[in-house]
Structure formats: structure tokens, C-alpha cells
């Protein structure tokens, strides 16, 4: 019987002259010595000769041949296992589902961050507004209906976003009460998590006391580093820094016994010192969770990237360096853990984003990046169903697993595709590559495979 090496098989060099064979689609791994791996790597057209098969087939029952087949790294020539697996995994996307609701409580913000992809993309004549309680309730109702028709959503999420959501705190409170009632009467699952993404400057004791009463609430405060760096990155509209107000807000939460995580946007002002900033989050702020944001393109960014290629490569490496630090202390960094969880648990990570975005004026979209232009936003009527709408269908299939140009990528099944908005603004379409994110995805995949070699040979 003739065999063929899977087109999804990648060879990754690791320590001690070991090489991992990795199926980037189905996530199987077998580790070989360099010489044996080289014999396989140099087969012409991936077709394995009978002589090589005999070599692989030695060593009794648990031999290399059976392990390579089991991990889908090679397959009998007459069975196109690659094609079958690719089709099966694509089928995983065919069931329509929505698991995230973004409630944009206002599209205005009291800060003027140079990299913000929401505020900086507003047309000059844009009229800012605040969400009303009625629109908040209609967004939650729409989400509850979509969840009812969706399958496989383990933990639905409602995210309060902006602008700065706490600038509309009365409506945030009303929405939180409405969510609690919807959970109590079974319209929303009891495990629906709630997250408030805030710049932290408006948090006071009254807000902290009100938030303390909410179950299953996560708070994420944007903080880009110590005072000097943060103040450069995240100033008020008059140019003064926001650091002291953010720390005062964080202190209010701590005084009220509320745990908060942090969001840190990596840009040219903090990327070089990211490892030190990570240690500071860990040791001084006692952060239990963190999320790194990779910059999303906007035309007013004034060089927040610096050199884009340098930014992308350094950012990718720094996120990995910080993960090495965080994993020793059990700190969850969301950006890399999306990929780590997929790789470790062997599940496919289809998307990096998606869901319902409820704008302050009641229009419904898929991405807040388009809030200014209202591209990919629709005005819902009483029959509106995002699960049946062509915009959501287009975004559902915006996954590396449905984009043939990424079939040979080492990060194929753990990537998620990055930011469609960034791909659109940098490269002309949501179906193009998010090239900055891509560097991070590939570097992370290679790191995980090499780290697995170390873990598997630990103590040997």
C-alpha cells in the first residue's frame, strides 16, 4: 500500500535534534529524531516509498507508521483523508450561531487615544449619542432570541462597550437589571457572563457599590503601562494623561472587593517594555487576568505602530514572552490563551470575533469598527433575525478554514483569522489577510509546537 504525507503536515525543529510533525488542520503531533523526519520531509511529492514504509513499520504494534496514520500525518494514497477532514471541519461552521452581544452604551468617550479604532473613524459631522434603556432592552431581547436558535454556545457573553460605557451608567444599570430578570425567567441562560470594558476614569464608590451586586460580572480596565507610557497612549481630549484617574478608579473597585482584569493595547510606546509591564501587572496590581490588544488600523493613528513589520514581529514575540511569565503564576492572558486552549484541547478555533453589535441609536451590526460608516450595520425591523441575514452569513464564513489561500498555514486551525476590519482597512476586504495579526498567529503556533517538544521530553 502506498502512503502520502498530509498536505496539512508541517515539520517543526525543536530542541535536542527532535522534529515535530504537526497536522495544522486536525492538530495531531508526532515527534521524531531529525534523521527520520528528514527522510519523510524529502519524499518527492509527499509520496512515501515502500522502502520507507518498511522502515516505519518496524518496532512491533505501536510503530511509527501506525502513529503517523493515527495522527493524520500520513494516509493511504487511495483514501483522500485530507479532503474528508477539511470538509468535516468546514461543516462545523455550517450551523448558525451567535454567542456574543456588544452593547455600545455610547459612541462618545472622554479619552482621546491615538489608536482607537472606534472614535478615530467617526466622520467629522458624526452626531454622538447615548443608548436609551429601550434600545438596550431590544438588544438583549434580540440576543436572547438568537441564542435560542443557536447551538453549542457554552457560555454566552454580553459585553458593555463604547465609547466609554460608564459615561452612560444609568442605562448600564437598567440593562444589568434587565439581564438579571431575563436570566431569572429563563430567557437568558444563567451562565451568561457580563463584561464591562471601561477606561476606568469614571469609576467611583457609587459605581463600584452598584457593580458589586451583579453576579458573573467581569470588569476589564484599559491600562497600557506605568504612568508615563499610559499617559502618552491614553490622554484626555485636552492632552492631559488619564493614569491617575484610572488608578483611582481601580482603587475604588479594590476597596469594594471587586476584582478587575486589564486590557493593554500594544503599540510602539510600550512594546519594547512589555515584559516589564507584564511583571508590573502581576506583582504590583495583582492582576489575575489580562488581555493584550493588537493595534487595529485607523487612518489617524499617527504612527502608533511605528514600522509595521517590526511592530508585528516584536508584538508576536513579546506576547509569547509574557505568556512564559504568566503561566508560572496562573495568569490568564486572553490573546494567547485563545490559541493555547485550541492547541492543548485539540479543538478548532474558527473565529476571532463575531456576534451582535447594538449601536447607541439602535442599528445592529457585526463590528464596532464600522460604527462611523455604518457599513455592515442594518436598521432592524420586528422580523429581523441576524442568523438569517446575509451580513452575518458573510462574516460567519470569514474563517481561515473557508479561505483557500490559508490552507497551507501552520496556524490554520488555531488562528481564528484575526480582525476582519483590519484586513478590510489594510488590504481591501474582510476576506483578505489581517497581516499584522498573522505574524502573531504563526509565531504562536510554532512556539506551542516547540514547547510541546520540551514538555514531552521533560525529565528524559
Amino acid at each position: 500500500m502506498n502512503f502520502k504525507i498530509s498536505e496539512f503536515c508541517h515539520f517543526v525543529d525543536g530542541k535536542n535534534n527532535l522534529v515535530a510533525l504537526y497536522n495544522a488542520l486536525t492538530l495531531g503531533v508526532v515527534i521524531l529524531d531529525k534523521d527520520t523526519a528528514k527522510i519523510l520531509q524529502e519524499t518527492k511529492g509527499g509520496i512515501i516509498s515502500v522502502k520507507i514504509i518498511d522502515m516505519l513499520n518496524s518496532n512491533g504494534e505501536n510503530n511509527l507508521l501506525s502513529q503517523l496514520i493515527k495522527n493524520k500525518l500520513i494516509f493511504p494514497l487511495e483514501q483522500n483523508v485530507d479532503l474528508q477532514d477539511y470538509a468535516t471541519i468546514q461543516m462545523g461552521l455550517s450551523c448558525k450561531k451567535i454567542g456574543i452581544l456588544y452593547l455600545l452604551m455610547t459612541d462618545a468617550c472622554n479619552l482621546s487615544c491615538g489608536y482607537c479604532f472606534v472614535e478615530n473613524l467617526m466622520p467629522s459631522d458624526y452626531t454622538f449619542s447615548k443608548m436609551t434603556p429601550e434600545i438596550a432592552r431590544s438588544g438583549i431581547d434580540l440576543f436572547a432570541k438568537a441564542l435560542e436558535k443557536s447551538s453549542g454556545i457554552e457560555e454566552p457573553q454580553i459585553i458593555f462597550y463604547g465609547g466609554e460605557p460608564l459615561a452612560n451608567f444609568n442605562v448600564v444599570q437598567e440593562a444589568l437589571e434587565y439581564i438579571a430578570r431575563a436570566k431569572a425567567d429563563g430567557r437568558l441562560p444563567g451562565n451568561t457572563s457580563i463584561t464591562i470594558n471601561t477606561n476606568g476614569t469614571l469609576i467611583n464608590d457609587n459605581i463600584a457599590a452598584a457593580l458589586k451586586r451583579i453576579d458573573n460580572l467581569n470588569l476589564a480596565i484599559s491600562l497600557d503601562g506605568l504612568r508615563e507610557i499610559h499617559n502618552i497612549c491614553r490622554p484626555y481630549h485636552n492632552g492631559t494623561g488619564s493614569y491617575d484617574d484610572v488608578m483611582r478608579g481601580y482603587q475604588c473597585l479594590q476597596n469594594n472587593g471587586i476584582e478587575a482584569g486589564f486590557c493593554c493595547t500594544i503599540n510602539r510606546h510600550n512594546v519594547e517594555q512589555l515584559h516589564q509591564i507584564a511583571s508590573w501587572f502581576m506583582d504590583e496590581l495583582d492582576a489575575k487576568s489580562l488581555g493584550f490588544n493588537i493595534l487595529i488600523e485607523n487612518y489617524k493613528m499617527n504612527g502608533m505602530h511605528g514600522d509595521v513589520k517590526y511592530y508585528a514581529e516584536l508584538t508576536a514575540q513579546k506576547i509569547i514572552d509574557c505568556f512564559r511569565l504568566f503561566r508560572e503564576k496562573g495568569i490568564y492572558e486572553d490573546r494567547i490563551m485563545r490559541k493555547v486552549n485550541a492547541f492543548v484541547d485539540g479543538h478548532i478555533y474558527y473565529h476571532d470575533c463575531g456576534g451582535i453589535v447594538m449601536s447607541p441609536n439602535g442599528m445592529v451590526g457585526v463590528c464596532q469598527g464600522y460604527l462611523g460608516t455604518k457599513k455592515y450595520f442594518v436598521k432592524p425591523d420586528h422580523q429581523f433575525d441576524p442568523l438569517e441575514h446575509p451580513v452575518w452569513e458573510e462574516w460567519q464564513f470569514r474563517s481561515p478554514l473557508f479561505m483557500a489561500q490559508f490552507k497551507n498555514c501552520i496556524a490554520l486551525s488555531i488562528c481564528g483569522g484575526g480582525c476582519p476590519y483590519s484586513a478590510d482597512s489594510r488590504n481591501g476586504s474582510i476576506r483578505e489577510l489581517d497581516d499584522i495579526f498573522c505574524v502573531h498567529a504563526k509565531a504562536t503556533a510554532e512556539f506551542l509546537i516547540k514547547d510541546l517538544i520540551e514538555q514531552a521530553t521533560h525529565g528524559q
Binding site: 521524531l32 518496532n59 511509527l64 492543548v344 521533560h458
Partner: peptide, 21 residues
């Protein structure tokens, strides 16, 4: 010839102390 098939525990060891709550 060296053949190592990583066990589930090897995969989990990548996460070290990170527990997903």
C-alpha cells in the same frame, strides 16, 4: 529511531498554572 507521541498531560503542561478558572 526516536518516536515520541505526546500524551494529553504533555499538552496540558504547556499551560502550567493557567487554569481557565
Amino acid at each position: 529511531m526516536t518516536v515520541i507521541v505526546p500524551k494529553q498531560t504533555d499538552f496540558h503542561a504547556i499551560k502550567k498554572m493557567v487554569t481557565n478558572g
